[in-house]
Amino acid sequence: MDENVISLDRVSKQYRDVRALDEVSLAVPRAQRVALIGHNGAGKSTLIKLMLGLIRPTGGKVVVLGAEATGAGFIEARRAIGFLPESIVFPDGMTGVEVLDFYARLKRQPVSKNAGLFERVGLAQAARRRVGTYSKGMRQRLGLAQALIGHPRLLLLDEPTSGLDPSLRKEVYGIIGELARNGATVLLSSHALAEIEPEVDRVVALIRGRKVADGTMVGLRQASAALARIQVRLPEGCELPDAALVCAASHERRGDGVTEIRCRESEKLPILRRLLAEPSALADVEVIPATLEDIYAGILRREEAR
């Protein structure tokens, strides 16, 4: 028995002349929030379609919620999956309530619980209006409400925050966090690297159908060549001793009296230790870890060099 919610074993997908996925393996345990990052066409949507059993892999095996995604029994497993496709357009003539009722019935869930879902995504006021009158953000929220029908154990969200304003994005991540705390597994794809960084437990990067990175933010930083930044403010007239800067990749004295030291993640602590040991008291130290964008840019460079 596989206890992972998602388990991909060397999965490949070949379209006519395009290799959309190349031997991707992935195991996602319960209640984890995973971000799938990569360019357009990197294979994110293909991966999600495979997990939904919408397409067959050309190689490897896809097991989701304990059932093989291409198997006959997977239809029933879909009842426990919530999916939000990218850029969805619901029929204009239907009201929000009608749209959600339709999807709840298909999942054999009582429509009486839909009012709570509208509440949750902040659409309660507009639920009885026609979808045609909705703004883009409201449509996206309706899409999210649809994905939440029936307390899914797995949520697959394709660009869940595209078209949403910042406060709404926060709300969406709030909902995702709450679901994960209640035991649901969430896999979301995104381009907004800065935005997802604090909101997920794990990041998986795809480039041209290959998995090129997989880990927690801390783990990715350790493995990455991306540099952390240490910003040091010195009292007036003091200079940073060269000894403190051994192993630093670079340093730069900025106009405002701050010296920025760039270093590999593994050198961060040794440099900090030396800095703090300096007798000339530091006025301030700030450590800025490499961001997901930095790490991803590093991965891209590495892949292009191959």
Binding site: R78, I88, P91
Partner: peptide
């Protein structure tokens, strides 16, 4: 319109 992909993800 993208609704077919969603419909197919249902049981």
């Amino acid at each position: 319109r993208g609704t077919m992909l969603l419909l197919l993800s249902y049981p």
